[in-house]
C-alpha cells in the first residue's frame, strides 16, 4: 500500500514538475519573441527552412488529399444523387480541416524533429552553455526565431496547400468524374465562405507555434548524449502531433460551435 502511494506521489510530482517547467519555458520563449533585440537573419533562415523547404511535402500531401477527397465524395454522394456537391465538399474540407491538419502533421515530422535534434545536440555538446558564456541568450538566439518562423510560415504553407489540394480535386473532377471545368470552379467558389479559410489559417498559425515550441522544448531539455537526443526528437514529434489534433478540435469549437 505504501509503495503504491509512493508511486502515485512520484507520478504526481513528476507531472507537476513537467507542467511547471513547460509553462516557464513557454512564458520565457514568448517573452523573448516580442522583446528586442531579435535576430532577423536567423528568423529568415528559419522561415526558409520551415516555409520553403516544406513546400514539396505539404504540396504533395494536399494534392493527393484533394484528389482522394474528390473520388471518395463522388462515390458517396452518387448514392443519393448529390454529385454536384463534390467541388464544395473538397474546398471546405481542405480549407477548414485537412489542409491545416495534414500540413501540421507533415511539418511536425519534418521540422519538429529537426529542431529537437539540432537543439538537443547543441545541449549535449555544451553549445547552449557556450552561447550563455558568450553573452547570448539561448532563448533569443535559438527559440524565438523558430517560434516566429513557425507561427508565420505555417499559415502561408497551408494557404498554398489549400490551393494545390483544390487543384487536385479539380484534376480528378474534370478528368475522371466528368465535371465541366467552369462548373467545377464555380461550385468551388460559390459556397466557400471567408471564415472557412480564416479558421484554417488560424489553426495553421497555432499548429506552427506548437510544432516549433515542442521541438525547442524537448531539444532544450534533452540529456544523456545520442540516446537523449533521439528521445527528444521522438517526444517532439509525438507531442506536437497530439497537440495539433487537440488544438484542432478546440479551435473548431471556438469558431463554429453553435
Amino acid at each position: 500500500m505504501t509503495t503504491l502511494l509512493a508511486l502515485i506521489g512520484r507520478v504526481f510530482l513528476t507531472f507537476v514538475r513537467t507542467v511547471g517547467r513547460f509553462s516557464l519555458f513557454t512564458g520565457l520563449a514568448v517573452s523573448h519573441m516580442v522583446r528586442p533585440p531579435l535576430y532577423p537573419r536567423l528568423i529568415v533562415r528559419q522561415m526558409i527552412e520551415i516555409g520553403y523547404y516544406s513546400l514539396p511535402v505539404v504540396g504533395l500531401t494536399t494534392l493527393f488529399s484533394g484528389m482522394v477527397l474528390a473520388l471518395q465524395s463522388h462515390l458517396g454522394f452518387a448514392r443519393f444523387s448529390a454529385e454536384g456537391a463534390v467541388a464544395t465538399v473538397v474546398v471546405i474540407s481542405l480549407t477548414r480541416e485537412l489542409g491545416p491538419v495534414l500540413a501540421g502533421l507533415m511539418v511536425a515530422g519534418r521540422i519538429g524533429a529537426a529542431m529537437a535534434a539540432e537543439i538537443g545536440t547543441m545541449r549535449v555538446t555544451e553549445q547552449i552553455d557556450a552561447l550563455s558564456t558568450l553573452s547570448t541568450n539561448p532563448f533569443k538566439y535559438l527559440v524565438a526565431p523558430r517560434l516566429i518562423a513557425g507561427l508565420t510560415m505555417l499559415p502561408l504553407l497551408v494557404l498554398v496547400g489549400d490551393i494545390i489540394g483544390v487543384f487536385g480535386g479539380y484534376l480528378i473532377g474534370t478528368t475522371k468524374l466528368g465535371f465541366n471545368p467552369g462548373t467545377y470552379i464555380a461550385r468551388t467558389v460559390e459556397f466557400l465562405q471567408i471564415m472557412d479559410v480564416v479558421s484554417g489559417l488560424v489553426k495553421a498559425a497555432a499548429f506552427g507555434f506548437v510544432i516549433a515550441l515542442m521541438g525547442c522544448y524537448h531539444g532544450y531539455h534533452s540529456k544523456g548524449g545520442a540516446q537523449g537526443v533521439g528521445a527528444a526528437t521522438t517526444n517532439a514529434v509525438v507531442s506536437a502531433s497530439i497537440l495539433i489534433l487537440i488544438l484542432n478540435y478546440v479551435i473548431t469549437e471556438l469558431f463554429f460551435a453553435q
Partner: peptide, 13 residues
C-alpha cells in the same frame, strides 16, 4: 568579461 574553453570545444556546427 569571461572566456571559456569547453571540454569538447563546443563550437557552433
Amino acid at each position: 568579461h569571461l572566456g571559456m574553453l569547453f571540454q569538447g570545444a563546443a563550437l557552433f556546427d
